[in-house]
């Protein structure tokens, strides 16, 4: 009976033994990659440790948080979550999450629609004053947020919008986020016009061309815009802090701070537990849209 081991080992027979130089080079390569990986792992761990600690600390007791720098809780407990969820206000944390959604959802939808419209206009149409308007749009990108805070506050106060969510999402409905407009324009510029021309020859009007042809091709960019807007709005602290004054309307970002103010001895584990919860929506949305997102931010590399 012939077994596998009886067959001559072709691969080994063909191979000539490595020369000393080859061996030396191989060894050098192995050493250098070992050093590289160790370095990367160490630096990576340093970067990610605070996050790991945060998650771990959320399951620790209040006393343990300050006793041990190690992230793994000695006696895991859900006490922090329970306390944090209840909060020291009449509302539980679910209420604040819902408040956040009242801001985030209109803002994301408004941004997607308005940025696409404005970008389409800038990228595809000729109109008087286009250059100047585009320059102004880009100029607002360079403007620090802080300098517009006070005029904006006065404006919204005159409109009677204080302590409502309107100042937080209405600017996005009129393409107030120049960065997103710019991002979509860049993406659009990389898409050849022939598809739109073909649609026009096919009888589609401007709106139909936009909806049936341009938007589907822009999807990766639009999804990235939505994702960025979702995460940035979820994490926005200053905006709600300025405009929202009643606790009932607080979004998550402010509500977290609330627990610090309200009690004398801070329940750190409660705060950290809720912080962990606050991270979850962004993470979930990110991983759901990851594929399109990567395609969207690598704007230049659109295939024709």
């Amino acid at each position: 009976m012939v077994t596998l081991s009886d067959l001559p080992d072709q691969s080994r027979a063909d191979r000539t033994p490595p020369t000393p130089l080859e061996l030396k080079l191989r060894r050098q390569r192995r050493v250098s990659s070992a050093i590289r990986y160790v370095l990367l792992i160490v630096v990576g761990l340093i970067m990610v440790y605070p996050l790991l600690w945060l998650v771990g600390a959320a399951f620790k007791t209040n006393s343990e948080i300050f006793n041990s720098p190690w992230f793994w809780p000695a006696r895991p407990t859900l006490e922090g979550f329970r306390e944090g969820w209840e909060t020291s206000t009449p509302y539980n944390f679910g209420h604040f999450f819902l408040n956040s959604m009242w801001i985030v959802i209109p803002k994301v939808i408004g941004t997607a629609i308005s940025c696409t419209l404005v970008a389409y206009g800038f990228a595809r149409f000729e109109f008087p004053g286009k250059k100047i308007l585009f320059a102004i749009l880009i100029a607002t990108l360079l403007l620090p947020d802080v300098v517009t805070r006070i005029p904006q506050y006065l404006l919204f106060r005159e409109l009677g919008w204080l302590d409502t969510y309107l100042p937080l999402f209405v600017p996005s409905w009129v393409a107030g986020d120049a960065f997103f407009v710019f991002m979509v324009i860049q993406f659009l510029r990389a898409i050849p016009r022939e598809m739109e021309e073909a649609a026009r020859v096919d009888g589609a009007n401007t709106a139909q061309t936009l909806i049936f042809i341009v938007v589907p091709m822009l999807m990766p960019a639009i999804i990235s815009v939505c994702l960025f807007q979702f995460m940035w709005t979820m994490n926005d602290f200053l905006g709600p802090l300025i405009y929202i004054s009643s606790v009932e309307k607080y979004p998550v970002s402010i509500a977290l701070k609330l627990s610090i103010d309200a009690t004398e001895a801070f329940n750190w584990n409660a705060i950290l537990s809720m912080t962990v919860l606050a991270l979850i929506p962004s993470l979930v949305v990110f991983f759901l849209a990851q594929k399109s997102f990567i395609e969207g931010i690598s704007t230049g590399g659109v295939k024709g």
């Binding site: 050849p192 022939e194 598809m195 021309e197 073909a198 649609a199 026009r200 020859v201 096919d202 009888g203 589609a204 009007n205 049936f212 042809i213 589907p216 091709m217 999807m219 024709g304």
Partner: peptide
């Protein structure tokens, strides 16, 4: 007239098929 109303059809150099 807009292209769609002229009674023409056009074939483009790079095909211009709707990719989606």
């Amino acid at each position: 007239l807009v292209p769609g109303k002229r009674g023409i059809a056009m074939v483009f150099q790079n095909y211009a098929l709707y990719p989606h």
